[in-house]
């Protein structure tokens, strides 16, 4: 990693990166994005296995996808929770994701867009710092 030596550097870096991260939000790529909540609660409920499952299986099933970890989404009661974003669509959060449901999510939601049980309606607003 190279140092960020000035505020201009930082801004440049951010603009570059927003392309990358933004793609997960702004539909600039055709990949499926799966985020697994990997905080203590999630991991304790098996999120690690779920994440491995998605990484492996999406590749094995030839689905262009990016699987990343993230922090706590707040739905501790429904761990493990994951967020799946299909290209061009709003992200959907699934709770109680065990391997069986993970498989269902790939087979139904990811492949066909058909929703499966366990959706958690997102009930919060997040601020945007880009002002």
């Amino acid at each position: 990693m190279s140092k960020i030596n000035s505020i201009a550097d930082l801004k440049k870096k951010r603009d570059e990166l927003q392309g990358g991260l933004g793609s997960r939000v702004n539909d600039t790529s055709n990949a499926v994005h799966v985020k697994v909540a990997m905080a203590t609660c999630g991991i304790a409920s098996g999120a690690k296995n779920v994440m491995e499952f998605f990484s492996e299986q999406l590749e094995r099933r030839n689905i262009a996808a990016v699987v990343t970890q993230t922090g706590c989404m707040g739905y501790c009661y429904a761990e493990p929770t994951i967020e799946v974003k299909l290209p061009g669509q709003d992200p959907v959060v699934f709770g109680f994701v065990d391997l069986k449901r993970a498989d269902q999510i790939i087979e139904k939601y990811v492949k066909t867009g058909e929703l499966v049980d366990g959706i958690i309606p997102v009930n919060y607003q997040t601020i945007d710092l880009n002002v």
Binding site: T40, C41, A44, S45, C76, Y77, E79
Partner: peptide, 19 residues
């Protein structure tokens, strides 16, 4: 409190957490 209250009651055996 291990901070995994969503999984209460929680038991730890070694590093493994049971919720």
């Amino acid at each position: 409190c291990v901070g995994a209250c969503g999984l209460a009651p929680v038991v730890l055996v070694g590093d493994k957490t049971y919720g």
